[in-house]
Simulated scan of single mutants.
Amino acid sequence: MASNHNSLIRTVDLNCDFGEGFGTYTFGQDTELLQYVTSVNIACGFHAGDPHTMRTAVNQALAAGAAIGAHPGLPDRLGFGRREMSVSASEVYDFTLYQLGALQAIVRASGGRLTHLKPHGALYHMAGKDKAIAEAIIKAALAIDDQLIIYGQSGSLLLDTAIRFGMPYASEVFADRAYELDGSLAARSKPGAVLHDADEAAAQAVAMAAQGIAYTPDGSPVHVQADTICLHGDGAHAALFASRIKEALIAADIILRSPSRTLRE
């Protein structure tokens, strides 16, 4: 696996979704966040992204030294890939294979290497609870590169599936979200589910990386495995949150680096 779970040296990856524009449209705070992250998840053309945007994003990530991952989504540009769709496992396999192949070609042409895969939006959540969808994504990754690291939510079915197929993986957590006692994210509609204070999010990030602990809206501790922390780029204060989180992790003597693609369970 790509986890530092049993390491004496505490390390964590900081990732963000990247290159989620299209044509003349931009989304998120790519330039601002790139200075804080150790890996990026680049949109591959379905929910966002186009050939030019993808190549630009790849070159920016390479220049910054960030690990490059694919961020395949559902073919729903209007809904930004955030709406669940009724799709078969075969369709998900084809969607994922198509997007992975496109980004891999651009990364190789630019002299880089594709290191990981993180499904986007609704596809991410569907893969976390649907065995057939999770298997379709893993099989597509295997067809491209059996050492691609699978990024998935801590405790999700997608990670269990990656382990079952012998794929390296990174367990993802969210510093700016509260959790339920079962390890799932608290619904955004629930009071306290979203952390709006940068210092509070930074404190949770340190607890996640150092102790494997997140918190419920009422402050109860929840066990999580934090190999990679997602930094959201679509909030009004995304860069501030990223800055505070990185500063807090470094102050806690936690090393920031992307997961190794050579480690396995």
Rank of each mutant, 00 (worst) to 15 (best):
L181V: 12
T26Y: 10
S7V: 00
A64D: 02
V40P: 11
E84T: 12
A61Q: 06
A141T: 08
M208V: 11
L74D: 10
K118W: 06
L158H: 02
S86Q: 07
A136N: 01
T26E: 14
G111V: 08
G101H: 01
R264N: 13
A143L: 01
P217F: 07
F241N: 11
T38W: 01
G183Y: 00
A48L: 12
E172A: 10
R55Q: 15
L74V: 11
H47N: 09
L97I: 07
D199E: 08
A132I: 03
F22T: 09
M126P: 06
P217V: 09
N6I: 08
E200N: 02
A136H: 03
Y124N: 12
Q35T: 13
D160N: 11
R77N: 02
V87M: 05
F95C: 05
A178P: 04
N59C: 14
A202T: 01
A63E: 12
A61F: 06
I163T: 03
L34T: 09
E32Q: 11
D76R: 03
V37Y: 04
G166I: 11
T228G: 10
M208Q: 15
G219W: 02
A210D: 13
M54W: 00
S171V: 05
Y25N: 11
P259L: 12
A122L: 04
A48S: 15
F165N: 13
G28L: 08
A186S: 15
F80T: 08
I254M: 05
Q60D: 14
Y179S: 11
L117C: 06
D227W: 01
M167G: 12
T96M: 04
I254N: 07
R264G: 08
S156Q: 04
G212N: 03
L117V: 14
P72G: 13
H237Y: 04
P119Y: 04
A122Q: 02
I245V: 15
L117D: 02
T216S: 13
A186W: 00
R55D: 12
A109Q: 14
A2G: 13
Y151Q: 10
I250Y: 00
A210K: 14
D234K: 08
K246P: 02
S110Y: 06
A105V: 11
R10M: 07
V12M: 08
A201L: 09
R108S: 12
M85Q: 14
A127G: 15
A102P: 03
E135K: 10
Q225F: 01
G212I: 09
E180Q: 15
Y179L: 09
A143N: 10
N59S: 09
T216C: 10
